[in-house]
């Protein structure tokens, strides 16, 4: 309890000044976060205009279109529309797999970096972030080039005689996974690195002193203590993976459609349906919020 009340010592006489000092933050958050989200929310309840844009008529049509199939002319009895739900489920699965993959590779990476000498740590961290100096689109296209049918990867494997015919990676789920993994790995590495770097290795010594073997120490002491970093990394990978559209578009092809691409389509070009895109965004947003809500509640319980 004592740890939780720090920072409450500013006397109430400073309260007005504090409000003024917070104003810039509120303006930024309001303009760039609250207003756009509210706009999307409002748009999701409007009627679509055929060349993009909206007509200011309130309707639930966008949500209805997402969930129900009412036939070609809209007068059949409603049945569940599986197309979009399937895209959502597949997106969640893809994002979950990408998160697990990033965790499996990211944790040992972060551990390795955090346990180097201080000077080497900054070099390794720099190397991890180097790809981020290149635009995501370029990186994704490079990945496409790398794994295509007669790309360097296949030629290399063929030359070594490991495979007889080129692997068909491009336009599969595996390609999408590769893209997501490559795009978001540092988001896993950095928070875990921060947690491991703060970890007090005397705790591991205490574990060994109390008869715990190496794996037990890892499972019972290290992992619980660095858990906040792991969860932060998972959220930072899962959330953008769920809404990603570059990797699925460029690497996954038409049949590996994800939520991000679905939404992107609605706002792009003449065929767009803004209210439908907005509604899809709101559904995606609420799913993310539900996940974060349960996480926050779990955290709050642990702090008691």
């Amino acid at each position: 309890m004592a740890a939780g009340i720090g920072g409450r010592t500013v006397s109430s006489a400073f309260a007005p000044i504090r409000l003024w000092l917070l104003l810039p933050s509120w303006v930024v958050i309001g303009f760039f976060l609250l207003i756009p989200v509210l706009l999307i929310l409002v748009y999701s309840f409007l009627t679509k205009e055929f060349r993009g844009g909206v007509i200011w008529d309130f309707t639930l049509a966008a949500y209805d279109q997402f969930l129900f199939d009412r036939g070609l002319f809209g007068d059949d009895p409603p049945t569940i529309q599986w197309t979009y739900i399937t895209i959502f489920v597949r997106s969640i699965l893809q994002a979950a797999v990408a998160t697990v993959l990033c965790l499996l590779i990211g944790f040992p990476t972060a551990w390795y970096i955090a346990t180097r000498a201080a000077r080497m740590r900054s070099i390794w961290l720099f190397l991890v972030t180097v790809p981020y100096w290149v635009n995501l689109l370029i990186r994704t296209v490079s990945m496409k080039f790398l794994i295509r049918e007669n790309g360097p990867l296949n030629e290399f494997l063929l030359a070594l005689g490991i495979i007889d015919s080129p692997l068909e990676i491009i336009n599969t789920d595996i390609a999408v996974q590769l893209g997501l993994f490559y795009s978001y790995l540092p988001f896993m590495v950095l928070p875990i690195y921060a947690a491991v770097e703060r970890y007090n290795f005397a705790l591991s010594e205490a574990g060994a002193d109390l008869y715990a073997g190496r794996w037990t120490i890892m499972r019972e002491i290290v992992l619980p203590v660095v858990k906040p970093g792991i969860i932060a990394g998972c959220i930072l990978v899962f959330v953008p993976s769920l809404g990603a559209f570059l990797a699925p578009d460029l690497l996954g092809g038409a049949k590996n459609f994800m939520i991000g691409s679905l939404i992107e389509e609605q706002f792009k070009g003449q065929a767009g349906n803004w209210p439908f895109g907005a509604a899809s965004s709101m559904i995606l947003l609420s799913m993310v919020l539900v996940v974060l809500f349960f996480y926050a509640r779990g955290q709050a319980r642990e702090q008691v």
Partner: peptide, 20 residues
């Protein structure tokens, strides 16, 4: 012998209690 195989226990300078 590794520390987990020695029948001795330590009281650490900063206690090193498991925080969780």
């Amino acid at each position: 012998l590794p520390p987990d195989r020695r029948p001795v226990n330590t009281v650490f300078q900063n206690y090193s209690l498991f925080p969780h």
